[in-house]
């Protein structure tokens, strides 16, 4: 089985984001990791290839040169090799991203399955798997938290809200966007980390892949979210503070 996993190099969600200029941030000051949702994708792909007994899991990233470290740590989860399409644009638009990932995969081989995460936690686009599927003319399901692959078909489940779940059926190859619940991504052990150091990561520049690909960031401004300045405390006994809270909320038309 030939499986491709799109993996984004993103700031750790616990990191503080220091903004600079109109629409930029200090990337040097931040720890970068694999997009958390993409780890479910890697885990699922590795398990499928392990079960199948043959094939490879190829990780594909569009990102800066530094993304090599993120690819290495994800390769340690058992993926075979990596492809890094290099761009220094931090906020590459989604259309270009999908085209770049499509071109990189197409150039490399023919996918039996393509995995992505459901959303990138930096730009929160929630659309790349759909665009990728369209470019490949393949079926797509996103926010998948349960998956069964049988020869030629896939059955994917997604949460609809209020505890309801949607079961989708499609032919393979297909594009699957993964989310929490699908599996428990493994923590690589030391020997796996050592092994990953020797795994192949092919690097190529975005323009070499396709000169027509021109990232157009669609970002006018980036601002910090104003933090609340601290709570107004309700005082007195439990009954008193509860009464005061209800009064305050009513005055603010929150109740």
């Amino acid at each position: 089985m030939q499986i491709y996993v799109c993996l984004k190099h993103v700031p750790d969600t616990a990191a503080n984001i220091t903004l600079k200029g109109q629409a930029d941030y200090e990337a040097g000051a931040v720890k970068f990791v694999a997009n958390p949702y993409d780890e479910y994708a890697v885990e699922e792909a590795v398990q499928l290839v392990e079960k199948d007994g043959s094939g490879e899991v190829v990780l594909v990233t569009l990102g800066p040169s530094e993304a090599v470290t993120t690819l290495r740590s994800s390769l340690a989860m058992g993926a075979t090799r990596g492809l890094l399409v290099k761009t220094d644009e931090k906020f590459c638009d989604s259309k270009t991203t999908a085209r770049a990932l499509h071109a990189a995969i197409l150039q490399d081989g023919s996918p039996d399955l393509i995995f992505t995460g459901k959303v990138a936690v930096d730009t929160e686009g929630s659309q790349t798997p759909y665009r990728l599927a369209r470019l490949f003319d393949l079926p797509v399901a996103n926010e998948v938290s349960a998956l069964a692959i049988n020869d030629g078909s896939a059955v994917a489940e997604r949460e609809l809200g209020a505890g309801n779940r949607e079961v989708l059926e499609m032919k393979t190859p297909c594009v699957i966007g993964t989310t929490k619940g699908l599996n428990e991504p493994r923590y690589p052990k030391f020997p796996d980390i050592m092994k990953a150091k020797k795994k192949e990561i092919k690097e190529l520049a975005l323009a070499d892949l396709d000169p027509a690909l021109d990232p157009r960031p669609n970002l006018g401004k980036l601002e910090p979210v104003p933090e609340r300045s601290g709570a107004t405390m309700m005082e007195g006994s439990v009954e008193e503070s509860v009464a005061q809270l209800i009064r305050t909320l009513k005055e603010g038309k929150m109740l």
Partner: peptide
Amino acid sequence: ELAADVLQIDFKAKTAVKSHFSGKTMATV
């Protein structure tokens, strides 16, 4: 293009505001 999960829209300026970095910053797209 698709602006996902926006919190504000300004049709006149043709912009929308959405979260970036898990809610730590707001982006005007």
